[in-house]
């Protein structure tokens, strides 16, 4: 029984149940009741939809656990040996996004690409270097020069002052 509850599918259903309770707890900050002449209050829509979501994900959980108790599914949720790369890419993305506000997009993005292309993807330097160098340049001209959208630069902001002077 416990093993069936701890299966990935059950855990995901449990997560959705938790999420819907959290949503309901937030939704009651606004009136959820029916105001006779004006219909439901601002909290009603999120509250009752979360309630339906809770019911539906409970249904998924019950069915998963029952099916698992009756006939355990031997297939693993993640392909063996492939969960490592997925976690690695997720971690690298987290670090990159965190770095964007600290050292800026134009340091974080090339670092990420260098790691992904060369060390994760094992591409040759001939493929890696042009992409790592070229992408930030294209990003700069597309977003900053053409669209006037300033990407986060963090502490590297002063380095861009001369470029701003040229293009704006």
């Amino acid at each position: 029984m416990l093993k069936a509850v701890l299966k990935a599918e059950s855990l995901i259903a449990l997560g959705l149940m938790g999420l819907s309770v959290y949503f309901m707890w937030h939704a009651v900050e606004l009136p959820t009741t029916w105001d006779g002449r004006r219909g439901p209050g601002g909290g009603a829509f999120p509250f009752w939809l979360s309630a339906i979501m809770l019911a539906a994900s409970t249904g998924v959980l019950v069915r998963t656990v029952l099916a698992e108790v009756r006939l355990p599914d031997p297939r693993p949720f993640f392909e063996p040996g492939m969960i490592g790369p997925v976690v690695a890419v997720t971690l690298a993305l987290t670090i990159t996004i965190a770095l964007m506000s600290v050292v800026g997009t134009y340091v974080a993005v090339p670092l990420f690409m260098l790691w992904y292309l060369r060390f994760f993807g094992r591409n040759s330097w001939r493929v890696t270097v042009p992409l790592v160098v070229g992408t930030p340049i294209v990003l700069f001209f597309f977003f900053e020069v053409a669209l006037l959208i300033l990407l986060p630069k963090g502490i590297t902001e002063p380095l861009f002052f001369p470029l701003y002077a040229i293009f704006f």
Partner: peptide, 29 residues
């Protein structure tokens, strides 16, 4: 073209493109 090249470009576009419309790191997270 190797998958990894495609994946890198898509991921970079997702992060930067997600930031661009409203310019908030909140959206990127």
């Amino acid at each position: 073209m190797p998958f990894t090249v495609l994946c890198t470009l898509v991921l970079v576009l997702c992060i930067v493109g997600g930031f661009a419309p409203d310019q908030r790191m909140h959206d990127v997270w």
